[in-house]
Design a protein around this nucleic acid. Structure first.
Length: 551
DNA sequence: CGCTGTAGCGCG
DNA sequence: AAAGCGCGCTACAGCG
């Protein structure tokens, strides 16, 4: 049985088999309803596989999590009691056949309720709250739900990936693909070189403790085997060792095994997890979608007759901070150009590099070193922006919660955190207890300080994504359907192909490239207006149209 | 043997 | 200098 709940709460119910469900959705989609999905990640991939897209949805799982914790919700008790909806994200659609004999369905990840009564009840709870709530919260739930649609659609479409170019890069840098169990030839050569220079032909470079001991025996007195510490050392073995570590990383993370698992039919299809980070950022599950090395971008290549639109927002987070705090001085320094240069031009800091350290330090809560020295200058130049993050930090240290512009609140303090704090106030508290309490309070302060900025930036990015999607659909409708030259049978419409916090990649037919680029720019303006109204600050994009995402 | 924790490094 | 936020992934170490 499937139930369609209209925007006014009216129900359309049909008794359907799983096979009939996509056709039913397609039929009703003509009226562009806002579909109520118990969990978009669970139900939408099947629709997409059947060639059915929906324009609008409300995701009960994601919105439950937002509304349950939001400080902008006055009466959320009923929602908090509906614990069946407290399901952590990452319900990866079951694709692989069951391999283990005892892999019962009940041992899989817990899922949101699927029965119509409970779905209806949860929707009614959320609707009552949203009807009474601040408009910002309605905007957030729409943006979050649209993000869930986009995540599924991007996985379905995939990022065009040039496997041959990737493999050539691998053989050039690593050597030929080794047989199972071995390592590529160039990597092995480097390892030999390191062992020779360390004077130990048997040491394993992949075991951190063993490598550390070998380094000590060779007179290299480091405390760890990390790159940044090794870089400080002068010893002939260091350079090939760093090279080995680099190759080793490439081999284990993004080489042939990765290609086999994540790239099929010339498309990279990662699993995006909307709302997977407490701040509202997306996470990913499998494929390492959010950690593709920049060097691998050359493998991202448009299909013949298609183009990529690659766009990222310059200094998204500091701009968001300026706007959400209403700091006109900071907006002035950022408007129309590079924010860091703006700080230099105003004599707040001496160099662009200093500006970067100061701004990041302000948002992350740095107190030591160069950042500690520079942040006070920002406090004088941009008092409103700094007051905003300083207040968020203080709230966090005191055990309170903070909230983004649109209403996503940070998690409550844990019982453990409270215990540590209380232990410090005991009359017979040992000196260590007070220190531990101070430290965990400051840790939390840095978290809440960053939460409001990172979280509001994530909201801006969601609005940007949603506006891009809307603009592309409008473009696609005027362009007419066709098929891709490679033989893949999806419509010849421009689509989002990749998203990474403040960056998007679109895959678009050549003749629509300019129009698509304009959609991306317009969407940034619309996102700014949605969140910050007429506040005088722009969000400039670095945007290029290319066949290849590399340099 | 499978599980969990950690180091290290990739991304914003 | 890895200082200071948020992540995921891999390989190894160490546990029972």
């Amino acid at each position: 049985m499937a139930t369609l709940i209209g925007a006014n709460g009216e129900e359309h119910t049909a008794h359907l088999s799983a096979n009939d469900w996509p056709a039913w959705v397609r039929e009703h989609e003509h009226a562009t309803p806002r579909w109520v999905f118990n969990d978009t990640a669970l139900v939408y991939p099947a629709l997409l596989n059947a060639g059915v897209r929906v324009a609008r949805a409300h995701d009960l799982r994601l919105c439950h999590a937002i509304l349950r914790d939001s400080a902008l919700v006055a009466a959320g008790d009923e929602l908090r009691r509906a614990v069946a909806w407290d399901v952590s994200p990452a319900p990866e659609p079951p694709e692989r056949p069951v391999e283990a004999l005892f892999d019962f369905a009940s041992t899989g990840p817990r899922q949101v309720p699927g029965d119509p009564q409970e779905i209806r009840a949860e929707f009614d709870r959320q609707r009552a709250i949203l009807n009474a709530a601040d408009g910002r919260l309605r905007l957030l739930t729409v943006a979050e739900s649209t993000g869930a649609l986009i995540a599924a659609e991007m996985r379905s479409a995939g990022l065009p990936w040039d496997v041959a170019a990737h493999e050539k890069m691998l053989t050039d840098t690593l050597g030929e693909r080794p047989a199972a169990g071995g390592a590529p030839s160039i990597m092995l050569q480097r390892a030999e070189e390191v062992r020779q220079l360390l004077g130990d032909m048997t040491v394993s470079l992949d075991s951190q403790p063993k490598l550390l001991r070998a380094l000590h025996r060779a007179g290299i007195l480091v405390e760890s085997t990390s790159k940044w510490e090794l870089e400080e050392q002068k010893h002939p073995a260091i350079e090939p060792l760093l090279e080995y570590k680099k190759l080793s990383r490439l081999y284990s993370a993004n080489a042939w095994a990765w290609l086999d698992e994540w790239v099929q039919g010339g498309r990279f299809r990662p699993v995006y997890v909307p709302g997977g980070v407490v701040t509202g950022r997306w996470a990913s599950s499998g494929g390492g979608a959010l950690q593709i090395p920049r060097a691998l971008r050359t493998a991202v290549r448009a299909a013949p007759g298609w183009r990529l639109i690659i766009a990222d927002v310059a200094q998204l987070e500091p701009r968001v901070l300026a706007a959400m705090s209403g700091d006109l001085a900071m907006a002035d320094a950022a408007r129309g150009h590079d924010l860091y240069s703006g700080l230099v031009d105003r004599g707040i800091v001496a160099t662009r590099q200093e500006a970067k350290i100061a701004v990041l330090g302000a948002m992350y809560g740095s107190t030591t070193g160069e950042a500690g020295r520079l942040v006070p200058r920002l406090r004088r130049a941009f008092p409103l922006a700094m007051a905003k993050v300083d207040h968020a930090a203080q709230t966090g240290e005191d055990g309170g919660t903070v909230t983004t512009l649109l209403g996503r609140s940070s998690p409550q303090v844990s019982a453990d955190w409270m215990t540590v704090q209380r232990a410090a106030t005991d009359v017979d508290a040992d000196p260590g207890a007070e220190q531990r309490a101070r430290r965990s309070a400051r840790d939390r302060g840095r978290f809440t300080r960053n939460f409001i900025v990172q979280g509001t930036a994530a909201e801006w990015a969601l609005a940007w994504l949603a506006e891009i999607r809307r603009g592309l659909v409008a473009l696609g409708e005027t362009s007419g359907p066709a098929t891709e030259p490679s033989g893949a049978t999806f419509a010849r419409v421009p689509h989002l192909a990749f998203f990474l916090h403040d960056e998007v990649i679109l895959h678009v037919p050549e003749d629509l490239a300019e129009a698509s680029a304009q959609v991306v720019r317009d969407a940034a303006d619309r996102a700014a207006a949605l969140l910050f109204g007429t506040f005088p600050l722009d969000f400039p994009l670095d945007l290029k149209i290319a066949e290849n995402a590399g340099k």
